[in-house]
Amino acid sequence: MKAISGLSNKIKVQKNDLIKESYSYVNKYLDRVNEIKIYEQLNDLNLSNFIFPYTWTYTNDELISKTHYFENAITLHDTDICKNKMKVVIKLIDEIHTLNLVGIKQFEPENFLNFFVNNTIKCLFDLSIYKEQINEIIKNYWNDSVKAVFSHNDLVKGNFINFKKGWKVIDFEYAMYNHYLFDYASFISESLNKKRWPVFIEMLNLSSQELLKLKDLITYQNYLWIYWASYMFEQTQENIFIEIAKEKYENMQKEINVR
């Protein structure tokens, strides 16, 4: 049995399985029933580019899932994210967005953020100067009248793995229907060095209106994950969450200078 670190779940490897056991304080903001609906439908599809649990149990508000474990897999943490890898990421995101799942929740930016605002004693950083801006972003979240698409919503480097047969996406526990630009914003803010942002954004070939929306979603996500990290730090007292909040706060400061 091998222990592996996890921020939202207790994770271990046993034989050829990666086993996740959910934490109670994470279950308070993740909809595990919605997550199971996603796994049920994904398992009915012939998908080669996504890795998700093949079995699970949900009892007493605890989700335990098993996913095939690939011992020699690498993640985007282990390699340089060059232009070719960016193209692969865009292709994977586009493939996620084409999935047609039924009965899956739609992301509610205000409600999701408010959970962390209302359940955090003290945010790790003072975000008061951004509150009005975030409220405006939330107010105009769907103002372009786009149709929501199935989205991953958590495209950190560790959620891209490669094990001989190309890059694949894992960990769909945050997945819901969402704005089509949210996943691109997630990858930019979570996985890319800021110097690489212009390269990736240019590859998206966005209109001026789409570019403004993308920047708004990046700002929203940085704000959201600072509150998330603050909540998680209070629950665990693990310094990794201070580091995450600091990185997002630095991104917020950079963004305000860009505008």
Rank of each mutant, 00 (worst) to 15 (best):
T120N: 07
E243C: 10
Q106C: 14
I19D: 08
Y69N: 06
Y180W: 14
L113G: 11
K168L: 09
D80N: 13
L63C: 04
L18Q: 12
F52S: 07
E190W: 00
E250M: 12
I81N: 07
L99I: 08
E110S: 12
L63Q: 03
V89A: 13
I90N: 14
F233M: 08
T120A: 03
I134F: 08
K28P: 00
Q209L: 13
G166F: 07
L42T: 10
F200I: 11
D61P: 04
E21W: 02
V33L: 13
E210N: 05
P198C: 10
Y231N: 04
C123E: 07
Y184R: 09
V169T: 10
I74R: 08
P198L: 04
L99H: 08
T236A: 01
Y177T: 06
H68V: 15
D17M: 07
N143S: 04
L181P: 09
V13K: 00
E210V: 04
P53W: 11
V88R: 12
F187Y: 13
T120F: 03
Y249C: 01
I218E: 13
K66S: 12
N27E: 10
G166Y: 06
L211F: 05
V102A: 14
L211M: 02
E173C: 02
E202K: 15
Y174V: 00
D154L: 00
L214D: 01
G6R: 07
F112I: 04
E243Q: 11
I81A: 06
E71R: 14
L45P: 09
F116S: 01
W56C: 02
E190A: 12
F107M: 03
N153W: 00
E40T: 08
F187I: 09
S48D: 13
E173K: 05
D78H: 15
L30C: 03
N46Q: 14
V13G: 10
S189G: 15
Y25E: 06
L127D: 02
I170V: 14
L181F: 09
L214E: 09
N49L: 06
Y184V: 07
Q14R: 08
T67Q: 12
I137W: 07
Y184H: 14
N72E: 14
L192Y: 04
M252F: 05
L155I: 01
K165W: 03
T55I: 10
V88N: 13
N9L: 02
G103F: 10
S145K: 14
N162Y: 15
D144K: 02
Y227H: 15
N135R: 11
E95Q: 12
V149S: 00
N140M: 01
I19W: 08
L192E: 06
Q253P: 00
Q253M: 09
Y184L: 04
F182R: 00
E243A: 15
K37M: 13
W197A: 08
K215W: 04
I161Q: 07
K213T: 10
F125N: 08
Y174L: 00
N159P: 05
K248V: 03
F182M: 06
T79K: 04
S151H: 05
Y174R: 02
L192R: 11
Q237C: 03
Q209G: 00
S22Y: 09
K165G: 11
D144Y: 03
A229D: 01
K254R: 12
V169Y: 09
I4E: 04
K139R: 11
V149A: 04
I137E: 05
M1K: 14
L18P: 09
N43P: 05
Y39S: 03
N27P: 05
Y29T: 01
E110I: 01
Q253Y: 04
